[in-house]
Nucleic acid binder design. Structure first.
Lengths: 348, 348
DNA sequence: CTGAAAGCGCTTACAG
DNA sequence: CTGAAAGCGCTTACAG
């Protein structure tokens, strides 16, 4: 099944070939391809025809070398200790999808790299001119990479990140209003008549987004004169396995609860599993609400009520902000408002 | 929240700066960075020190322009009519993860693009020197892009695809032994005492992988003197919604069945939903088996028995084969053996 | 082992 | 509106 007969070398078509064929100078070819307005219409037509006939494409490297712009953005997706490729958070993959689309829309290419937080941080994507800027995606220990962000800034690297928006954040961040999302979840559970709400997910300031979700939920309870019980909170990173394990821990404590607010959909789905296994019914015995609005939430069993983040807007905003930075136009951090999708996991 | 104070332009460090600092010629710097053996150890040390001190990175475009190699591969993920980014098949995302890793291992970067089958096919990734070769990923109507593959080959473009391996396939394909996988699923359901197996997923030759899965299952039944009933097959592309809808159609036919073999995990999960909604118990009334081995199969409710494709090997093989093509070394199509993960959706 | 020099294929002032 | 020319930052024969 070898394919030797197809290995013929391509002879590269250059702008000089086009120039000859269109009987103009190479400079003019370049002007036409750059869409310069200072070209005679007829000349332009001839050049474009030659380009089509020879299937000419501008050499990206020659062009970038000359202009000092890569026309490419790099996406660095890092996750804590997730050795298994297949467990990449689907929420980030949704954003990845919309980022590729936004890049295409702006005529940029997208380089992707999935890294561990522990890896080298490849700031050299920009140093080596491979990319004009970086998009950073990933949950993880905030403190662990805070210093790396400062370092990137100091180097003058262009980057934006998805994450929790804080005042003292180095650089530009696009993120969800996690507090508002948490409040929605809490309010909804209250509306469903629940009073003892467990929270699954890290709720320390080291994980700012989860922490804000927790606090938002608590705020809703406090408005109703209630509060979250620390005994009903269990740490968990955003995986199904962690959600499953955390729910087990919660159950083992034998404290009564009638609802679970999970810091992510993955955690929620893992938790529903553990609850079901323990003979509890969702939502009759325990109502469950997730966070993210991933596609799988719609098809879990029962379908999961969840706080939806608009990934498609997220991707567009990330790319927009980064391109502004690259072009030296003012850009700023932004917060997206989430919405609540109510499904059977909370309302029978 | 604007960040004007950080917009200072970086002054690019070039190999000439390194040369000055290390008191050697620019050519020698280049030799050191290329790992040439013809450099004095002491000279090499001085250069490397200067490189470190100035945080120098080779300019990718200058290097690629000179060598005529991009050092980059491009991944084109296309799916039929999937307007919503978020519904990208998780199976492909798993492969994407392992492809990024394989690329990194070989010192290559990865450019990604998610396209509709209907879009232009961007063979120009290679024409414009942006990438040395293409990896094609996606289910879809076989006939619809068969001709595009032929076109790519004719242009001398380097590419590999993930898909069903057929004899008369243009180019190189890495894929799963879908027939063997289908047979495993069928045999397992027989072992579970099931006799009337429904198949959800397109089973025509236009969708070769699904078709082979169907035939593999049928082969298992025939070995047992049984056969698949055409009345128990319903077409469906690989989405949860399609699986849900297909199961509804199946139920509406009111023909008895005691098992469902779904052509993909997504279809299976959607189908389990519809079955549960109709008051059927999985696996007591209907055993369900999926295909792919996606992470969500482990956490569906009940956990899904599924034919597992080794995505991590898949990514490695795709990248290996493509790099061979790029380097003009013989490469060939390959088939991966799937395995069966038995879970509660088929065995009570 | 090292340096001087050519050249990869563009873009963009500069002249006209 | 168009062309001649310089130069982006490398790599790699060619000489020594």
């Amino acid at each position: 099944m070898t394919e030797p007969r197809h290995s013929r070398k391509k002879t590269r078509v250059t702008s000089l070939d086009i120039a000859h064929r269109a009987a103009v100078s190479q400079a003019t070819v370049s002007r036409v391809l750059a869409g310069s307005p200072l070209v005679n219409a007829e000349t332009k037509r001839r050049v474009e025809q030659a380009v089509r006939e020879l299937n000419y494409k501008v050499d990206r490297h020659a062009s970038s070398l000359r202009t000092q712009r890569a026309g490419t953005l790099a996406l660095l997706l890092f996750e804590d200790p997730t050795p298994d490729d297949s467990h990449i958070n689907p929420f980030f993959l949704s954003i990845l999808g919309s980022i590729t689309r936004a890049c295409a829309k702006h005529g940029h290419d997208l380089l992707v790299s999935f890294q561990q937080l522990s890896d080298d941080w490849h700031a050299d994507y920009e140093d080596s001119m491979k990319a004009d800027g970086l998009i950073l995606l990933g949950y993880g220990d905030y403190l662990a990479y805070q210093s790396k962000l400062v370092h990137l800034l100091a180097q003058g690297t262009h980057f934006v990140r998805w994450g929790h928006v804080l005042e003292d954040q180095p650089g530009i961040t696009i993120g969800c209003d996690n507090h508002a999302g948490g409040r929605m979840a809490g309010q909804h559970l209250l509306d469903c008549g629940r009073r003892q709400i467990a929270f699954l997910g890290d709720a320390s300031t080291r994980f700012p987004e989860f922490h804000a979700r927790y606090q938002g939920c608590e705020a809703a309870l406090q408005d109703a004169g209630l509060s979250m019980s620390p005994g009903l909170q269990v740490d968990a990173p955003s995986t199904e396995q962690a959600g499953y394990d955390a729910a087990k821990v919660l159950l083992a404590r034998k404290r009564p609860f009638d609802a679970v607010f999970a810091a992510s959909d993955l955690i929620a789905i893992g938790a529903m599993h553990a609850l079901t296994e323990a003979g509890l019914r969702v939502p009759e015995d325990v109502a469950v609400v997730g966070f993210d609005g991933t596609p799988m939430a719609r098809f879990s069993n029962p379908p999961l009520t969840t706080v939806v983040q608009d990934t498609s807007k997220a991707g567009a905003l990330l790319v927009d902000a980064l391109l502004r930075l690259v072009r030296d136009t003012p850009a700023q951090s932004q917060t997206l408002q989430p919405t609540l999708a109510i499904r059977a996991s909370s309302v029978g």
